[in-house]
C-alpha cells in the first residue's frame, strides 16, 4: 500500500470508530462502548507485536511464559482470586521488560479462559493482567522494584487494582445512574476477594521471587534474548 492510501485507510477507520463511540456515548450504551475502549487500549500493543521483526526464540519464550502463567491459574480456579498468575506475569516483566510483560499477561488471560470459559470478562482480564506486566516492566530498573519491599507493595496494590478494574465491566452497563455510592458498595463487596488476591501476590513474591528471577535471568543471559530493543 502507498503512503497516501494507507493514511486514507487508517484515517477513515479511525473516523468510523470515533463516530461509533460518539453514537454509543450519546445513546448511553455504555457497555458496548466500554468494550470498544478496552479493545482500543490493547490494540497498539498487538499492532506493534505483529509488525516487529522477532526471532522464533523470542516468540516461543513469550508463549512458554504465557503457558506457565495460564496453567498456574487452572488448579486454583475453585479459590476465587487466589492464583500465582499475576506473580508469574510480574516476574516475566521484571526480567524481559514491559512489552513482554503485557503480552504474557494478556495471552495468559485468553488461554486460561479457553479452559475455564470465555465471557465478557475476557477482554478486561486481558487488559488487567497485561497492565500488571506492563507497569512492572516499566518500573523494573527503579530502586523501588529492585527491593523485595517494593515488589511486595507493587503486588499488593495490583491485587486491589485488578479487582477494582474488573468490577467495572458490569458496573458500567448495569446501573441506571452510576454514583460514588454504587462504586463504594461494589468495592466493599469485593474487598475480601481483592484482599485474597493481594495477599497471595505478597505470599508468592516474598517466597518465590528471588529464585524465579534467577531462573529467568539465566535463560535471558544464556540466549541473549529480548534485550536490546526492549530495554
Amino acid at each position: 500500500m502507498g503512503k497516501m492510501k494507507r493514511m486514507l485507510y487508517f484515517g477513515s477507520l479511525a473516523a468510523a470508530i470515533v463516530v461509533l463511540a460518539v453514537v454509543l456515548w450519546m445513546d448511553k450504551y455504555y457497555m458496548p462502548l466500554s468494550f470498544l475502549m478496552i479493545g482500543l487500549a490493547m490494540l497498539p500493543f498487538y499492532i506493534r507485536f505483529e509488525r516487529k521483526t522477532m526471532k522464533a526464540e523470542e516468540i516461543l519464550l513469550i508463549a512458554m511464559l504465557g503457558a506457565i502463567a495460564a496453567v498456574s491459574r487452572v488448579p486454583f480456579a475453585p479459590l476465587p482470586s487466589v492464583q500465582p498468575t499475576s506473580f508469574v506475569i510480574m516476574m516475566s516483566a521484571l526480567v524481559f521488560g514491559p512489552e513482554v510483560g503485557f503480552l504474557v499477561g494478556s495471552i495468559a488471560a485468553v488461554v486460561s479462559n479457553i479452559f475455564l470459559g470465555q465471557g465478557p470478562w475476557t477482554p478486561w482480564q486481558m487488559f488487567c493482567w497485561g497492565m500488571i506486566g506492563f507497569t512492572a516492566g516499566l518500573l523494573r530498573n527503579t530502586r523501588f522494584m529492585k527491593s523485595l519491599w517494593g515488589k511486595n507493595i507493587f503486588g499488593f496494590s495490583w491485587g486491589f487494582l485488578f479487582g477494582w478494574i474488573m468490577n467495572l465491566w458490569f458496573l458500567i452497563g448495569m446501573y441506571d445512574h452510576l454514583s460514588w455510592k454504587v462504586f463504594a458498595s461494589a468495592y466493599v463487596a469485593s474487598f475480601y476477594f481483592d484482599l485474597a488476591h493481594a495477599l497471595s501476590n505478597v505470599f508468592f513474591i516474598s517466597i518465590f521471587s528471588a529464585i524465579w528471577l534467577k531462573i529467568l535471568l539465566r535463560v535471558k543471559s544464556k540466549y541473549g534474548l529480548l534485550d536490546s530493543e526492549l530495554a
Partner: peptide, 10 residues
C-alpha cells in the same frame, strides 16, 4: 500463532 503455541504448551 502465539496463542496456538501457548495452548499446545498447556
Amino acid at each position: 500463532f502465539i496463542i496456538t503455541v501457548t495452548l499446545r504448551f498447556v
